[in-house]
Every structure is written in structure tokens, then in C-alpha cells.
Design a protein around this nucleic acid. Structure first.
Lengths: 251, 251
DNA sequence: AGTAGATATCGTCAAACTGACGACAACAAC
DNA sequence: GTTGTTGTCGTCAGTTTGACGATATCTACT
């Protein structure tokens, strides 16, 4: 029964209603290289092609919930609660794409999320995904479905820029880590080499960044390194690194 | 006539469809103070209350088109074409809010845009707005409709952070401007005072930022200042200021 | 055990940058 | 002209940066 007299405070009928998807740019550092998480699509469109994990937002859920659900369904990776806070794992909104010209099914809006994960998160396919794997971002022109190449590039650039001014690089590390591990993250994300001595001085000398645990982390060859954790009470989304850890570049 | 056999490549029926609005955080610098653009709502909900300009995205338009259309309808401010490029006016996506718990009409997604405008843009009410005006952002707790207080705060923080590392402050200025005008933008956006001599040294000494025109801009008392324009070919969205113009702060 | 190789951490030093501020130039108002 | 105001150039000490030497402490191998 169509309602001819809409309630005084209803959404106007001229407004469009759009299907909304979430897509996740999940990044990690494995073997000193930055990797992104991709799945092989099991359904049309782009069936069999690689794509970012993601899917439609269901009624009654938030965007963050949809992002976490789709990620878990398709890759079995579980974002810990409070991953927008301190420590390993970090989930933040990247930006919104669409609705025109990006999905053959019609106008679809996609809200992209950026996830920074430690290397111990190993994916396993599920849901609408035939396979899930980490691929090095160096494999350029990944040939992803939809506009996911573009979204992935935006996510990588966001990550590269953000670790300059925020403690977010620690989101790639386990809860306790050495300065060398942290330096490895910067080197992998930026694709550059950094001087170990200067990096140590800057990282440990930046107030509100690292907190020593007193313990040592051994294992490999060489002198054992001191273990650090993120300084307590830091919001990695806020810009707190003064001075910032700038990428070498124009000057 | 309901379709019982959906096309193989159609949006699944379990997917929700959401009304989508765009809201614009428009900022300008007037009388050495940062101002935001607000309108008084003519329609329910929140009728009569102040809000950010914005409205529903219509079928067939992009988000940027919807943002520009709503801004023009409600405030008569026209965003010049290519405002995502160099020069005065700058429009960029801020982030997406919702869909739960932010609109009494139900789940509505809102894509917020950030507009940086020169002071010569004067609004006039129209469309669904009873009034349109610039209000100083210092008037805290503006009491805007929906979650617009939150969106406005996010937009202001984005602007404050972005002028540190990008030439975006010039988006508040006319096409040609003096170093003092530019300094006034920084002082207004950050709410601080800057040393004119050191600012002049940094602004003119940063490669890829300012380009002298050779002409002088006179008028007021004191020695006439040299006119500059933005260096050609800069993408204000890209991080190009090396070293950045950091806010004074922790150190 | 002893040595070689690797890594972590601390120092040193010159160049660049920053913030505070003096000095002078070039205008308007009187 | 004198005064007040603003723009631009210099100076100077303290800080930060980048390059790199030196030493500590581990593993691996002979």
C-alpha cells in the first residue's frame, strides 16, 4: 500500500537510495616488504578476478561493523576490538568512492577503510572469496576489480604519509617491539633505507612515542635490542610526533 | 512486477540501500578570524535550527556535483570548476558519517566535504535554507543540527593540520596575495600569532610554494608588499612543503 | 675457546634550521 | 618633515639533522 501522504519528517522521495559497500585496504609488513590483502572473487561481476576484501553494508550495521564483518568472512582476519586505538591493528576510514561509473551493476557507493595489521595475521579464504592472500604492493598495476587499484593506491599513500606525523607505524608491530623492527616498518612502507643510528636517536628521542619496557628481545644475531611499547595514552590518529619523522626528499 | 530471478550480476537483495546526503564544511578567513558557513533549516527535522549546508544526493549525480549543487542552492556560493586544483577555493572530501543514529528519519549516510574559500564569497539564502551566513568558529558549541557540530570540528581540524604540510592556505587567498595575507590565514586558522619576519623567511624560502609576480600590492599604511601567487603546477592535495610550516607546540 | 660477522647503542661534528629580535626601507596621515 | 605602520633583510644562539666513527653484545663457525 503506497503512502500518498509522507510523514512530515521523512526522507524526500526525490532522494536517491544507494547500495553501499565497504572495501578494506589491509596492509602489513612481511619480509621487509609492504603487502596488501586481496581476495579472488567468487561471484559476478569480476568473478575470478582479484579484488580488495569487502561487500555490501547490511541494514542495521555501522560502516565499521560492515568492514570488520566482510574482512572476517572473506579472509578470517579478525580486527581486535578498539583497533582504532593504540597498539597493533589500526582501522580508519579512508574515503568514499562513487556512486557513478565504478560498478557495472549500477550506481554503488563504496566506503573504503584502511587497516594496518601486524604480520602475524594470516588470511584464509571464506565467504564470497575463493582465495585470500597478501601480495607485495610492488607488484604494480595489480589489476584489481572495480576501481580497487585506485583505492589501494590511495590507501598506500595515506599510510606512507601518516607514519610521518603519527605513531601509526607501531600498528604494524606486535605489542612490544624493538627499534629495529619499527625501523623495518618505515623502510618497508616508504621503500627506503634509513640510518639505524639516526633513526634510533629520533624514535627514542621523540616525546610521547616509545616507552621502554626494560626487557630485551633476543633471537637473531647481534646484540639484543631493548623492547619498547607505544607510550600509553597516545591516540595514533592524532598528530603527536614533534618533530615528525620526515621522509627524505625535497629539501 | 517483482523479479523472482535476479540477473546474474545484480545487487543482492540482502544489501541495504541508503539515502545519502552531502554536507559541506565551508571555511573562510574574515577579519582575521576563521569562519564557517551555516544555514538555517527551512524543513523538518531540525526546522529553524542552524546546520551545515547540504542535502540529499540525487540519482545520476556525483558526490562532488551534489556538494556543489547544494551549496549553490542554499547559499548561492558557486565553487569554481577545478576547485580541487591550485588557487583560491579548494574542495575535498572530508569523511563519511553514519548510517546509524545520526538522523531521526532513519539510517542516512552523509558524505562531508571540506571547502576552503576566499573571503570575497558572500552567501545568500535560497532553496531549503532560510538564511545563510558566516559564523566565527570561536563561537563554540555552535549547536548545529544532526551531528554537524562533530563534522564541523573534524573539518576545522583537517584544515588546521593540512596547511602545515601543503600549500592549501593559499586557497583562502585571492589569486595574488602578499606574504602578510598568507600569514593572516595561518594566524586565523591556527588561532596563534606568528613572527612576521620568520614567517616571511620560511614562506618565501620553501621551494615549490610561492612565486613572485614582481608587482606590488599597496593600499594600507606601511611599505607596500610584494605580490605572490602559488607556484605553478603544485597539487595542493599533495604534501609538498619541505620543510613543513609546523604549528608551535610540543618540542 | 676463539674468532668472525652481525646488530644495537652511544658519540661526534659540520651543516641546516628555528625562534627571537635588531635594523632599515617605503608607505600613509598629520 | 615627522610620526606611525608595515614589509623585508640580517644577525645570532640554540636545536635538529645527516653522515659516520666507536664500542657493546649477541650468534655462528672453526
Amino acid at each position: 500500500m503506497p503512502r500518498t501522504t509522507p510523514a512530515p519528517s521523512a526522507v524526500p522521495e526525490t532522494a536517491g537510495a544507494f547500495p553501499v559497500t565497504v572495501d578494506v585496504v589491509a596492509l602489513t609488513v612481511r619480509d621487509a616488504e609492504l603487502h596488501a590483502l586481496v581476495v579472488d572473487r567468487l561471484l559476478e561481476p569480476y568473478r575470478g578476478q582479484a579484488a580488495l576484501p569487502g561487500g555490501f553494508v547490511l541494514a542495521g550495521e555501522t560502516l565499521e561493523q560492515a568492514a570488520a564483518r566482510e574482512l572476517e568472512e572473506e579472509t578470517r582476519l579478525t580486527v581486535p576490538a578498539g583497533a582504532t586505538g593504540t597498539g597493533p591493528w589500526h582501522l580508519e576510514q579512508l574515503r568514499t568512492y562513487g556512486p557513478l561509473g565504478r560498478d557495472p551493476r549500477g550506481p554503488v557507493l563504496s566506503v573504503a577503510y584502511l587497516l594496518l595489521a601486524p604480520a602475524f595475521g594470516l588470511p584464509a579464504a571464506g565467504g564470497d572469496a575463493a582465495a585470500a592472500r597478501w601480495v607485495p604492493v610492488g607488484d604494480t598495476g595489480a589489476g584489481l576489480a572495480f576501481d580497487h587499484d585506485h583505492i589501494l593506491a590511495d590507501g598506500i599513500e595515506r599510510a606512507r604519509a601518516k607514519i610521518e606525523y603519527s605513531p601509526l607505524a607501531a600498528a604494524f608491530c606486535p605489542p612490544e617491539f624493538t627499534v629495529a623492527e619499527l625501523r623495518g616498518v618505515y623502510e618497508a612502507v616508504w621503500g627506503t633505507r634509513l640510518d639505524a643510528r639516526n633513526f634510533h636517536r629520533k624514535a627514542t628521542g621523540t616525546p610521547g612515542f616509545l616507552e621502554p619496557t626494560g626487557r630485551l628481545g633476543g633471537g637473531g644475531p647481534g646484540r639484543p635490542a631493548e623492547l619498547f611499547r607505544l607510550a600509553p595514552g597516545v591516540d595514533p590518529s592524532a598528530t603527536v610526533l614533534h618533530p615528525p619523522l620526515l621522509r627524505a626528499g625535497a629539501s
